[in-house]
Simulated assay, not measured.
Amino acid sequence: MIDLYTWGTPNGRKVSIMLEALRLPYKVHPVNIQANEQFEPAFLKISPNNKIPALVDDEGPNGEKVELFESGAILLYLAEKTGEFIPSDPVERLECLQWLMWQMGGFGPFLGQAHHFLKFAKEDVPYAKQRYKDETARLWQVLDTQLAGKLFVIGEDLTIADFAIYPWAMRYEWQQIDPEQYPHVHAWMKRMGHIEFVQRGMQLP
């Protein structure tokens, strides 16, 4: 059995989408970050950075229990465990990993800062708002260029790169982004949104 410790954030939903796609049995343990449950000692033992998601798999490498934190690492672990949603071709695999890391390093942290300063900051910080709005728009354009002529992020097949990027794109309103200005991303979002396991994963916890 897999135990998923998560909350309804883009990073959490990456992993719930993946688990739904893989059809693996798992149990959801909500960690209410609005109530600071991520700082409780029991969760700290699993996730030393006090961030969701975290995952515990009783059947990890060599049949031993494994505890994981960081959503990108969890996606990669599950893909390698099952051989699904990651290309077997070495060149395509590198392409997938590049876009996974692009999400982890850019289309996540910068969009998260846009969420903070545009929606949640208690004081108005015009410089920060403009900085993160501009970088968010740039990253959306990078993704739009990549998706031109493709069904999914790296081509014809779904990968963990799609699962990582999609939940962040779906927070476009918090980023003050109009998806219709990025037609290739917009079409991809619609395709992703029609996949049943994506729909289920986006509803958890």
Rank of each mutant, 00 (worst) to 15 (best):
Q146F: 10
E20N: 14
L75D: 00
L139T: 03
H115E: 12
V56T: 09
H194S: 15
D89T: 01
L68M: 12
Y77P: 01
I165L: 11
K65L: 15
P10M: 06
L97R: 06
L111N: 14
P87Q: 01
K150Y: 02
I74A: 00
L118A: 07
E156V: 03
D134E: 15
I33E: 08
C96M: 08
W188S: 09
V142T: 13
Y127C: 07
K14W: 04
E59S: 13
E64F: 13
Y172M: 11
I33H: 10
N32Y: 09
T82Y: 01
F117T: 01
F197A: 10
K14L: 02
S47Y: 04
R138L: 12
T9M: 08
L75T: 07
F117Q: 02
R93L: 05
K119P: 00
A42M: 06
Y166R: 06
L4V: 05
V31H: 02
V31R: 00
V142L: 10
E80G: 12
R23N: 14
I195K: 14
D57G: 12
L151Q: 14
I17C: 08
G108V: 03
I74Q: 01
Y132P: 00
K190M: 11
I177P: 05
G112T: 10
F120Y: 09
Q103D: 06
P126V: 04
I52T: 07
V28F: 03
